[in-house]
Design a protein around this nucleic acid. Structure first.
Lengths: 231, 231
DNA sequence: CTCTGGATCTCGATG
DNA sequence: CATCGAGGTCCAGAG
């Protein structure tokens, strides 16, 4: 990892054309040759960058550039496309390198897939006597998160989101319309399950006869742990 | 901008739970208090981060942490949610600060909006005698990029993309179905215009009677400059 | 390998 | 303020 604080201008040419006027910025050169240009604000997205695979070459400024005060030019060329980043450096304020080694990587938890697995394993959370038919039940317009049966044996399609918004209700509605045309499945009712359900989404869902269930992730996980402990 | 090279472990708790095992990494603290944790590879996305508005506090490690070799703990708390990032530092290899000032920001060019403007101004590129009706023609399911008329006066809906893929053809198809139900407009034909059109998208479009046009951005811009020079 | 859908998405435009 | 769409999206999982 090379970290350079420099007064520079930057030009990207590739899928679009973009220009950064002269200013003091942080330039990061990673071990794989990728380059990030960061300012002192904004989110995690750099102002400009080149993703790997790519190669960085430091070249001498041409006459016109030298006349403008450019002391070095970085040309970062993507290996598999015509994407190119050009950094014109006017002044270097700092330039240090550190060997970081390979990162062991991120461990994630709590994503939608995990919620789906937990709820599928504990489908009785939705009602006593409910049974799982299957996860990722395929329909011609995509997979329904969970298909199950209520205590009376009637089919129920469950759509799971971390944050329940209107588009999730629309998605479930499309599945229900389709599945209710299938005489082997119909009648199919719907459950919209999410860690958090926005008021608009709840109103729309309930207006369409879809039941809304707020999932407590910690509780589901706790039940899961308890279940595991019993075996 | 504070740049710290440290051996650390990181825990994020908020919209999900994520953990980074002990390793040597770059920690960036921006002027607005946001924190990025970068490894020496991957893309521009940090391994972990906290977006502004947030505040970073450096606290003493508790007894258990100290026993594990933690010398400092950073607690980064989001200002408007319960999102929290915890960085446990075992060793600091470097720690420097630089004042970068406010960045003048990015200047973009070549985006879809620009293509739309250029093509609207030079609609005759699609055919001699073609005339512009209007840009962003509103329909109940969204705006059509360009509505125009061919030399015979028949309406044509134009969908513009930088990269033409199947979803763009589907979008245009929906507009055409809707517009052809309107007796004042029908019959409406379609043009799918993009800088690059994928073979699958072209096949689908042509199968539906939609004409495909590959746009040359440099040429459109050149024609635009020429036009400007005439006035 | 390509394709698909989610994301701690980010970012900008628009009502 | 929220919503909507696009992204140099990135990213992981499935086919």
């Amino acid at each position: 990892m090379r970290m350079v604080i420099a007064t520079c201008s930057v030009d990207y040419d590739g899928r679009l054309t973009a220009h950064l006027p002269l200013a003091k910025r942080l330039l990061l050169v990673k071990a794989d040759g990728s380059v990030l240009v960061h300012s002192d604000g904004g989110s995690y997205k750099p102002l400009n960058w080149m993703s790997p695979p790519c190669a960085m070459a430091e070249v001498e400024p041409d006459e016109a550039e030298a006349a403008e005060g450019v002391v070095a030019v970085w040309v970062v060329q993507h290996a598999k496309s015509e994407d190119r980043l050009r950094v014109r450096i006017h002044e270097v304020h700092d330039d240090v390198r550190h060997d970081l080694g390979v990162d062991p990587g991120l461990v994630k938890d709590g994503v939608e897939a995990h919620l789906q697995r937990l709820l599928a394993e504990q489908i009785e959370v939705l009602g006593e006597g409910w049974t799982l038919t299957r996860r990722e039940y395929q329909t011609p317009i995509g997979p329904v998160d969970i298909l199950c049966r209520d205590a009376t044996g009637q089919s129920v399609a469950v759509e799971i989101k971390r944050r329940g918004e209107i588009d999730g209700v629309e998605q479930l509605t499309r599945y229900l319309e389709l599945m209710n045309r299938d005489p082997h499945l119909a009648p199919v009712t719907g459950v919209f399950a999410a860690q958090q359900i926005k008021p608009q989404a709840r109103t729309l869902a309930e207006d369409r006869g879809i039941r809304c269930v707020v999932l407590d992730y910690a509780e589901l996980k706790g039940l899961d742990d308890t279940t595991l402990r019993l075996f």
